[in-house]
Design a protein around this nucleic acid. Structure first.
Lengths: 358, 358
DNA sequence: GCACTCTCTTGAAACCTTTCATCCAAAACT
DNA sequence: AGTTTTGGATGAAAGGTTTCAAGAGAGTGC
């Protein structure tokens, strides 16, 4: 991004605006329909208990007055919210929007709505959103956290806001988590590269505070150990974020190395990095996979459509989101809910970027 | 999407959960700190008017009780919300997440938070979110609407919720809008293809209820007329949505045509369609651009990294979002706000998918 | 006709905060 | 010393909804 926005000069046209309105509440509706406050409330919340005739009168009054229920007041009195929130790491990463889709599916099935928030890998933003959501008394929070040990995160459930951690297996007794085994994923990727005969392999990822980055690297190391190779064969290229732009930067660094010291393969902590790396390397004249084999992670939709279709580690994205939402719903409705740690298994999808054309 | 989720069997581990908590309000804080309700409220909202000593006492009490302000009650009494919402067409389209990034930037600068909602091109979902947000009394709504003539949308501002329409130039006196000239964009795309000598051109897009789809097609037709060609040279392939999967479907249909009737170029209503089309055509053996030139729309980040780098019509995405948010903020704070219609100009970015290798 | 159900409707209390006019004590004047 | 000013703290009222115990009518059975 950020290539964007060459500050184009827009055309503007102006208009005067309409005067400020004033809202009608249940009281006004009750008066207009000639019934009591309680009846209006019943129409809103338990329509079956009010007679068809009165209900019709009340509904007509609502329509003609343009009544809009004040959710703050409702929630204050009733104590419950009909909203879930999902705090994502990065809305620009299709992996998370796919997870979000799963969340929405499950929420919709339960009659709830979902608000999406994005921390953009910034701890302060994440903290600000968590505070806000807690103050809003949302029914629950789904989050892919930046810092899984944040005290804010741990305190939330004890104060009454259920939390489910998504895409991170967190061994904390205070909430559920749903994850994919990232260590195994890293192992799958590297084993595949080792089988293809690669010896010097780069690991592209960062910052090293993000759990996914760490686990995938650990898996990579484990694969090396299992194969009896020294883990120094894994050359780490640390990036500042998990974005296409950072991937390009890593490609620049990689391509700059002399051919005899350059790794013959790269395993990237996610597909955005891999796509950036791929693009940069190709444009600098490296052939993929001949000069450099590349493995990504997440198997986002664009991985298959890349310049060289990308080998990647697939995760069940929507299922992840759906499961997380279901756990959250269970936690907030089922009195003897037990916290769970659900772990899915990733799967390697081999494409041209490692295997070449067959 | 939806290729996802082969219903992997996860492992689950269970744990007993902690007992239910109970919240502390201002009253409890006041008691604990030995001050009055009003003082606690002052610490929260106007810390400068309370003496450092009492403030410290109150803050200590808050911390030890784990006080969390009840935003519903605050909002009910104070009447104002600190939240904006952006209702997107499709969170899976990087174009919209880039717009969202611009919105967040502007909101953050003004000390507000943004909730993202996604209608997924479903009119009912859009309606449900609009109702919800209105009931929440959010400070304002940014929306890329499915149906720009929705009565719900038009009524919103008259009831007190400011609305700014994003990526659609809407000539309605009730709200601001920020858009990019889609007709011009379509024209740019087709003129480019005409210059390259193409005669039979496909237009891939749909459903035809979406404004962007219509405008870009109209621009395409206009370019043909300007060049003195019949608009029947534009062969319409209507899709059910603006997604990669639908693009693949269109590719299937296109590649199935006999070579002498098949268009030599395709203009897609967005990049997701174009990427799907590209991928499918290539895998069916068509060469791009020799057998089929392709032009996309939006110039998302993945367009450049595609199998064949995609020619596309670029829009100032973040700027679009930022401008929209600024208009919304002006509307809700400036008493003599005037509604505006801001129109940016798109730009054609030529890449290999039309021009071939030079 | 009387007692009793049953179906709807009612109105006051409660939810938690913010606001604002008032009050207090100490400091600053005359 | 007496009066005004000032910096802080106070507490009752208000905001729009839901809840719930209680009431009102109409219908039923004897």
């Amino acid at each position: 991004m950020s290539v964007d926005d060459a500050e184009a000069l827009p055309e503007r046209t102006r208009r005067r605006r309409a005067p400020k309105p004033h809202a009608a509440g249940v009281k006004a509706v009750a008066a207009a329909a000639g019934v009591s406050l309680g009846t209006v409330s019943n129409v809103l919340n338990r329509p079956e208990v009010v007679s068809p005739l009165t209900r019709a009168k009340v509904e007509a009054a609502m329509a003609s007055l343009g009544f809009v229920r004040n959710e703050s007041a409702r929630q204050l009195r009733a104590g419950s919210s009909r909203i879930l929130a999902y705090v994502m790491l990065d809305a620009g990463n299709p992996f998370f929007t796919d997870v979000a889709k799963g969340v929405e599916e499950a929420a919709q099935a339960a009659g709830l709505s979902v608000f999406l928030c994005t921390s953009s890998e910034d701890a302060d933003r994440e903290a600000a959103y968590l505070d806000l959501l807690e103050q809003q008394r949302v029914q629950g929070i789904l989050i892919t956290p930046i810092d899984q040990n944040s005290s804010r995160l741990r305190k939330l459930p004890s104060r009454g806001t259920p939390v489910v951690v998504v895409d991170r297996a967190l061994d904390d007794a205070s909430h559920c988590s749903v994850a994919v085994n990232d260590v195994l994923g890293g192992e799958l990727a590297i084993s595949h590269l080792l089988e293809l005969g690669h010896e010097r392999i780069a690991y592209v990822g960062g910052p090293n505070t993000i759990g996914q980055v760490i686990d995938r690297r650990d898996g990579a190391r484990r694969a090396l150990r299992t194969a009896g190779k020294p883990t120094t064969n894994l050359i780490e290229l640390t990036t500042g974020a998990l974005t296409v732009a950072e991937g390009r930067g890593a490609g620049q660094r990689l391509a700059g190395l002399p051919a005899d010291r350059r790794p013959t393969a790269a395993f990237c902590a996610n597909d955005l990095l891999a796509l950036g790396l791929l693009q940069q390397c190709v444009s600098l004249g490296l052939r993929v996979p001949e000069d450099l084999a590349i493995v990504g992670y997440d198997d986002i939709e664009f991985a298959e459509a890349a310049a060289v279709p990308l080998t990647s580690v697939r995760q069940p994205r929507q299922l992840l989101g759906r499961t997380a939402a279901e756990l959250l719903l269970d936690e907030s409705s089922n009195p003897d809910h037990e916290h769970q740690r659900v772990t899915f298994t990733p799967e390697l999808v081999v494409r041209t970027s490692t295997r070449g054309t067959l």
